[in-house]
Design a protein around this nucleic acid. Structure first.
Length: 560
RNA sequence: AACCCGGUAGUGUAAUCGGUAACACAACAGAUUUUGGUUCUGUUUUUCCAGGUUCGAGUCCUGGCCGGGUUACCA
């Protein structure tokens, strides 16, 4: 949270300074450049909010550009999902949708230019030879024997690489920089490799593909980007980014690196998330336990809550890990204001109101959202047989348990005060039903004589019930840091939480929920926030628990 | 190991010429409450270390220490 309204994070500080100095002629132009090799996650949301947010705040523009230079890992499935997720988060690239692959011809022409300027050469060493020739951080590399090929030979070879005359791995194009450079990255980095792979956009037009380093800065340059904002791991690449722009003499944006977002009890590695999907640890990229944007969306997160969270976490260069509770609190804060309240019983315990006539039924007024009077109210039916939550009754309650017990009186939300008179058990001793009396004078939940109860319970009328499956989610991993393993023989997968999904099949809902449609969000009173899952069908309602309510009783119990 | 980047309450983030170390969340205690929710009040806890410059250092300098990134024909 910001201490004062004057505060600007260091990236915005740079943007404002540049605006003040006129460095870019008053322009602010950013871009969000995902590689379409996976689904976007909450970490990308930070980058999206930063790039699109800065553009919006300073009257600039933000492009969406797919960094699609590695056809072997990329796919249109990812392209489509990324566009959907960016839009869902509330951002708009207008007519500025670009692909690095759109620049392949230009990039190729620039490569020939660098060859002519003797700043690039075709190297015919094997992968292994290149690797060993690069040296180590403490020892300089050795020049490739092909480093001094003539311009004409390089041009000829490079053109034949493009023409498909050589097998994969036969040659690469390298920048001629310095094999003794202290930055390993500047020891004649690879610009092009031969790949006979079909590209999701260019098909089989190309068999040579530019590397990230040779592509990214030039793409920024072509789009007249001013501030190229990326995460910290690209800090090492900045000298190369700068080198290509300078060597080519083209518009040279400023690369600025910020810290990526990490969260406890989950992970952001696209590679690992893909593995969770492929090996079936989760049901898909949009499994509600995944930190992906589509997973969070299906879980019931709102774009507003994600944007607020991202604004809250801030932008610095520190390595930071946010507590998952902070993300959850932002959802709670949003939904507390905006989600309608409903009553639902997950683990039903039958209650019979012995002094309530069998054929009678009350239609009681229930307020939809105490935080928002405009949300109005609804009717809930009350009858002789009800369900309450099993956890709301204890035969022999401890001191701090305020809910129902033998001889105790509690309030049923929006209904009546009831007093427990009898406990019915089966032959094994399990409680199967409790009997209560109600006080007709307390209709609506207020006692005219001013008497107080210590608890208010949620409930549903047995014969008016709507049934549903409810999926209760917990952290994907049992440890804050999934990489922390007790036994060195184990890896992060051993920290997967076996109880991260619990399915309740016989949940009893109040009748108004029968008309809920996919995506609807509710607070089930005293339980948490839930949304209607996309697997809901005409005869089966499915709810996902987005987040629990804070639970002071659970905390008290945990103390032991 | 070399290069790059960081180190401020438990966590994240402020302190904008070098001028009283603060905010949020978490934790704890209490008040209110027809959700053990919400709201409100209060409490605990902070500048990695050692020197130096200075009237004064989280901020500047020197040297350590610790953490992260990089060492791909991935991005």
């Amino acid at each position: 949270m910001t201490a004062s309204s004057e505060y600007r994070d260091f990236v915005r500080q740079i943007v404002e300074d540049d605006l003040a100095s006129g460095k870019w002629g008053g322009r602010v132009h950013t871009r969000f450049p995902p590689e379409p090799n996976g689904y976007l996650h909450i970490g990308h949301a930070k980058s999206i909010c930063l790039n699109f947010g800065i553009a919006k705040e300073y009257g600039g523009k933000c492009n969406l550009r797919f960094d699609d230079t590695n056809p072997e890992k990329e796919d249109v499935e990812y392209v489509d999902s990324i566009m959907e997720d960016v839009r869902w988060l509330g951002f708009d690239w207008e007519d500025r949708l670009f692909y690095a692959s759109d620049y392949f011809e230009q990039l190729y022409q620039w490569a020939e230019l660098l060859i002519r300027r003797e700043k690039a050469y075709v190297c015919s060493l094997s992968l292994e030879e290149i690797r060993s020739g690069r040296g180590t951080p403490s020892e300089p590399g050795t020049d490739s024997p092909w480093r001094s090929r003539s311009v004409d030979e390089n041009l000829d070879l490079f053109r034949r690489m493009r023409a498909g005359e050589f097998p994969e791995g036969a040659h690469v194009l390298r920048a001629r920089i310095d094999m003794a450079h202290k930055h390993m990255l500047l020891r004649d980095p690879i610009m092009y490799r031969i790949r006979y792979a079909e590209h999701h956009r260019t098909g089989n037009k190309w068999c040579i593909y530019p590397t990230y380093d040779y592509t990214h800065g030039q793409s920024d340059s072509l789009e007249q980007i001013t501030h190229s904002i990326c995460t910290l791991e690209f800090e090492n690449h900045r000298p190369l980014y700068d080198w290509y722009c300078e060597a080519l003499g083209i518009h040279h944006p400023q690369q600025i690196e910020f810290n990526r977002l990490n969260l406890t009890y989950t992970m952001m590695s696209k590679r690992r998330l893909l593995l969770l999907v492929q090996e079936g640890f989760v049901s898909g990229w949009d499994d509600p336990r995944m930190p992906t944007i589509c997973g969070l969306r299906r879980r019931g997160y709102t774009p507003e809550s994600i944007r607020a969270f991202v604004a809250y976490v801030g932008v610095t260069k520190n390595n930071a890990t946010m507590d998952m509770v902070v993300l959850e609190n932002h959802l709670r804060e949003d939904l507390n204001r905006n989600a309608a309240r409903r009553m639902a019983v997950l683990n039903p315990l039958k209650v019979v109101i012995t002094n309530y006539p069998e054929d009678q039924c009350d239609e009681l007024d229930a307020i939809n959202n105490p935080e928002n009077p405009a949300a109005g109210s609804r009717k809930v039916p009350f009858s002789r047989e009800l369900f309450i939550e099993q956890e709301d009754f204890m035969e022999d309650p401890p001191k701090k348990f305020f809910r129902l017990g033998p001889g105790r009186e509690v309030r049923l939300r929006w209904a009546y005060f009831i007093t427990c008179t009898e406990v019915i058990k089966d032959s094994s001793g399990k409680i199967v039903e409790i009997r209560c009396t109600y006080d007709p004078a307390t209709k609506g939940g207020d006692a005219p004589d001013g008497r107080k109860v210590k608890a208010t319970l949620h409930w549903v009328s047995a014969r008016h019930t709507v049934k549903a499956d409810v999926r209760l989610y917990d952290h994907l991993f049992v440890r804050e840091d999934p990489d922390e393993v007790a036994d060195p023989a184990l890896d992060w997968k051993s920290n997967l939480n076996p109880a991260s999904l619990q399915v309740v099949t016989g949940a009893m809902l109040e009748p108004s929920l029968a008309s809920a449609v996919v995506g609807d969000r509710f607070q089930f009173e005293r339980l948490g926030y839930f949304c209607v899952d996309r697997e809901t069908t005409a005869d089966r309602l499915v709810f996902n628990r987005s987040v629990t309510l804070k639970d002071a009783w659970a905390k008290e119990q945990a103390k032991g």
